[in-house]
Design a binder for these strands. Structure first.
Lengths: 168, 168
DNA sequence: TATTATTTTCAATAAATTTTGAAAATTCGG
DNA sequence: CCGAATTTTCAAAATTTATTGAAAATAATA
């Protein structure tokens, strides 16, 4: 397979993959393109390469910057802005975990704390089922939260090594 | 907070949560409803409780059954079908991990294997960047695959215990 | 087997999300 | 400060995804 075709397949699959994880196709594709680009790209480069509009390009680059996956690069003597993606995949994963934990897991745990304190007789089957479910999710969620915290702070080699040992 | 309100909040948040993870709102809400219901429910119960159409209810229940999260229950002497969700959250998580691994991670790893074998001079900056990125993702992906495999086979108590030890 | 209850399907519709592109805002060099 | 290059915004349009509801299929009962 030729590089051009391989790049295209990678970008397109990364985009499809993203949609299964609540990330929009274009954002994932821009990320993929920057991941396989050795040098930083401009908005124009990206919009031409992916055949998308200027506005779309701009908004999704901003979003990738918000996620901490892409950074603006200033090249001396150049007027245009350049963009480049973090290439260390372990760092990328940690960054995504960090953000999703903050945006989704933590608010969910806060809500569960509130809901667990529901009024009513614990002997009531309905109340019991509700509290049991909420408590169960909370317990596992809290554990995941701690685990992810540690993972975010971990070095790849440490993490992989420890997992290898742990999981035979 | 009263049970009715708490249940509603739980169902609605679970639905919103789902949309961040590529799961449609209704499917997540039906799952949430079944999770907090001590007894199995019929399609009619669900469509009335969530204010959704019969068709929508039916399709999403089927989908939950495909995911292995809900099962059909036959009550003796009853004509209608009843449905109930697995209540053990650890089992639920394992089942979701198992399915997503099969549906998303494995196909992605297969693709990366193919893409890694791209033609071209490894001295070429473009080729090198591409191969490095693909290899990096593949390496981490393979590791995740193994780890998840072990997790799927693990007992909750063993898993939690081991993680506690591992992550201080 | 005929009748009725129940489930399933799926074309049409609605809703949500993404994308466009042109205008406005900003930035930079002279 | 002026003018050109560049970036940003956002209402409108396009696209994608979810939902409805009625008809068809299926299953249970008598």
């Amino acid at each position: 397979m030729k590089l051009t075709e391989a790049r295209q397949q990678f970008i397109s699959s990364w985009g499809a993959f993203g949609t299964h994880w609540g990330i929009n196709r274009t954002m994932a594709q821009i990320h993929a393109l920057l991941l396989v680009s050795p040098d930083p790209l401009t908005q124009d480069d990206i919009m031409h390469e992916l055949n998308i509009s200027r506005g779309n390009t701009n908004m999704n680059i901003r979003e990738l910057i918000n996620w901490g996956l892409v950074e603006r690069v200033l090249l001396t003597g150049e007027r245009k802005e350049y963009f480049s993606a973090e290439k260390d995949i372990w760092k990328v994963v940690k960054q995504i975990v960090k953000e999703r934990k903050k945006r989704e897991l933590e608010p969910m745990l806060q809500l569960l704390d509130k809901l667990e304190a529901v009024e009513g007789d614990k002997k009531d089957k309905q109340v019991k089922a509700f509290v049991d479910t909420v408590s169960g999710i909370k317990k596992l969620g809290k554990q995941a939260d701690k685990t992810l915290d540690t993972m975010i702070r971990a070095e790849e080699s440490w993490f992989v090594g420890a997992l290898m040992k742990l999981f035979k």
